[in-house]
């Protein structure tokens, strides 16, 4: 039994969620806690990371991330396999984040995209930037984390799901419950805001 479980664990870790072993999913549907722990193993970092960036509060994030997995376990019989498991988990996470934000009285901020300091909102890629040769510094990451925190929740969720979690437009549409066209629009706006923030950071760095 132990060997079988270890083999299954390996299968889950080394495959995408679309290839998740059917046995594990059917065991989860039968409320098998051991099988479900393999799913937690595989997704805990992604779900926790998403929730932490959405809520910007470690305590809330830990609580909500736990809630995501508990809800998933208790409602696993509702998972019909039409969406991938990751999409389903991110959908639960997204809904719980919205609920928590509402409870905390935080309303999603309105999106302001007025160009500031002469920077257009639709700049093409900065010619100074060469992803092949430039290393992403931790300061740059910090600047992006701060810029992410400034995005409205609806823009942030789409950006994180697409650019960090690599979900497709269709998967995000299902997870967040918005049309594909809206996903693209929000992604475009979110990237522009982030790019502006990073430019401000780079300009500040160049002046120093």
């Amino acid at each position: 039994m132990g060997i079988l479980l270890n083999n299954m664990r390996t299968t889950v870790r080394h495959s995408g969620d679309s290839a998740l072993d059917r046995t594990i999913i059917s065991r989860c549907k039968n409320r098998d806690a051991e099988a479900f722990s393999m799913i937690v193993d595989q997704y805990q970092a992604r779900i926790y990371g998403f929730v932490r960036r959405m809520l910007r509060n470690t305590e809330d994030a830990e609580d909500v991330a736990q809630e995501v997995f508990i809800k998933a376990f208790e409602n696993f019989d509702r998972f019909d396999g039409r969406a991938s498991l990751s999409t389903w988990l991110f959908k639960i996470a997204s809904n719980l984040c919205i609920d928590r934000a509402r409870k905390r009285g935080r309303r999603p901020e309105l999106v302001s995209l007025e160009p500031g300091n002469g920077e257009g909102i639709h700049d093409a890629a900065d010619s100074r930037w060469d992803p092949q040769s430039s290393a992403v510094t931790s300061e740059m990451e910090q600047a992006i984390e701060e810029a992410l925190a400034q995005l409205s929740e609806k823009l942030r969720s789409v950006l994180l799901l697409h650019d960090l979690e690599e979900l497709s437009y269709e998967e995000i549409s299902k997870a967040v419950g918005i049309p594909v066209g809206t996903v693209k629009s929000r992604l475009f706006l979110a990237r522009n805001q982030l790019q502006q923030a990073l430019k401000r950071y780079l300009i500040g760095e160049a002046r120093q």
Partner: peptide, 14 residues
Amino acid sequence: GQEAVAVVKSLKRD
């Protein structure tokens, strides 16, 4: 191709 996208992709997962 923007740097912001590249930085987001490189963010660590806690």
